[in-house]
Amino acid sequence: MTDLVSGFLQAIELLRRGDTSLSQIVVLSLQVSGIALVIAALFGLPLGTWLALSRFRTRGLAIALIYTGMGLPPVVVGLFVYLFLSHAGPLGFLNWLFTPNAMVVAQIIIATPLIAGFAMAAVMGVDPELRQQLHSLGATRVQATLAVLREARVGVVVALVAGFGGIISEVGAVMLVGGNIEGATRVLTTAIVLETRQGQFDRALALGLILLVLSFFINLVVFVLQSRGAPAKV
């Protein structure tokens, strides 16, 4: 309990002082996860929508793969990305290992199936006859699909939040492919691991609290946006 209180107090102190290394860690965490989220959304949202609205022979298999991807252990993702980006790997020429780029790649792989899976469920929740009715009103296939996505907007936001939550809080992948290098690839989660290993529980707790507060504020903003966009109820 004492550790928790002192951790909380130290977090406030660190924030009040405007600790440079801390700001760097927070900014890099947000940068890496933010970029990964945007790219994962560009893949995941269309993929989830397509799986929800299409009918093809191997659709069941594709959905099963997405569900499997939603539960991918980050450390396994990290291992694969490591092997691909290492000098001996097929993408070694990029020289991305132990850079934020490698961390972004790993987080994209983690977030994409999460976003696709949640988006698919959200779109499937929209009445399937809606698209046909919009089609009959003269909508093109793309226009009708966009309208369906708009109807599923609450679920789409949840998909994005789930994707962000999955990557901002993961440690295994970014630790493996980023290397936790101070001033270069150290993010909140890897910094927490390091501080804990060094017995700096106060600082680790402070970082943990900052991570929690960050997540809370991001979710709060999303919740407010979602409430504004949500349809009025009877």
């Binding site: 009445d127 006859e129 809606l130 046909q132 009715q133 009959s136 009103l137 003269g138 093109t140 309208a147 708009r150 109807e151 349809p231």
Partner: peptide, 18 residues
């Protein structure tokens, strides 16, 4: 699309946008 837009079907169970 031009031809399709000259006819509109009203369904038995209308589904309106939110």
């Amino acid at each position: 699309l031009v031809l399709r837009r000259r006819v509109v079907l009203v369904f038995q169970r209308p589904i309106l946008l939110s």
